[in-house]
Amino acid sequence: MLRVRNVTKSFGALMAVHDVSFELGDIGITGMVGPNGSGKSTLFHILTGFYRLDRGEIFFNRHAIANRPPHQISRLGVIRSFQQTRPLPFMSVRDNLIAVAPRQCGESIWPLFFSPTRVRRQERALREKADGVLDLLKLAPLADELAGRLSYGQQKLMELGRILMADPRLILLDEPTAGINPTMIRQLVAVLCRLCEEGIQIFLIEHNMPLVAQLCQHVFVMDSGELIFSGTSGNARRDPRVVEAYLGRESHAA
């Protein structure tokens, strides 16, 4: 489904991602771990078109997506979240969800005036869909609240809701559980597992190792811009390079 070959990206002298190649199978939840600054987010930015890459190829279902603009990649069904929460603060929670839905005919000027019924029908359908998603996330009571007034954890859940509105085929999550409480983590995990069962593929960056071990069939480990491990999470903990990457970081921090 997603195939990455020899992807390289540098910022000046800094090699943020160096010659990374991997493939994601067709189903399941894949984890990406690695110390701070190892290039995980940068790789996500590259996969979703937000950063240009220096070298390499990326294929999603046989579409070459390297260096395509973000909205085109998104329209193929590759939907991402950002490491920082990014609510649309002055729109209601429900509108946050409805606004991001793809293929809205009312976003073109012509249909607004010449097929208003079609626009109205789609709006109603989107509203129902959004309310369904909010129910699933237990955010329904907050539907009319301004998104900027939600707690951090609620915003993270809402962001997952936005992604669900987009009919994703591959979801890229950049640290979905960072900074939120255990109850919400459990809720989030339940939703992720459900999506996985529906055949949506999930690729997530995560620092929470027990969670990765619990969720992910497959794990990648990055260090200093390089992919140093690919395999099951059990094996990752025994891999000498992975151990060194983490221990190196800890002794550095000490």
């Binding site: 909205h71 729109m91 991001v100 709006e123």
Partner: peptide, 29 residues
Amino acid sequence: RRLTGSPFGRALRVIREDEHIAQAFGKNV
């Protein structure tokens, strides 16, 4: 008023508030 009260206007507000979100969700900004 029709334009701005429609999905078109909503997409513009998404762009105004966070262009990256608009792009990440497939809007041709």
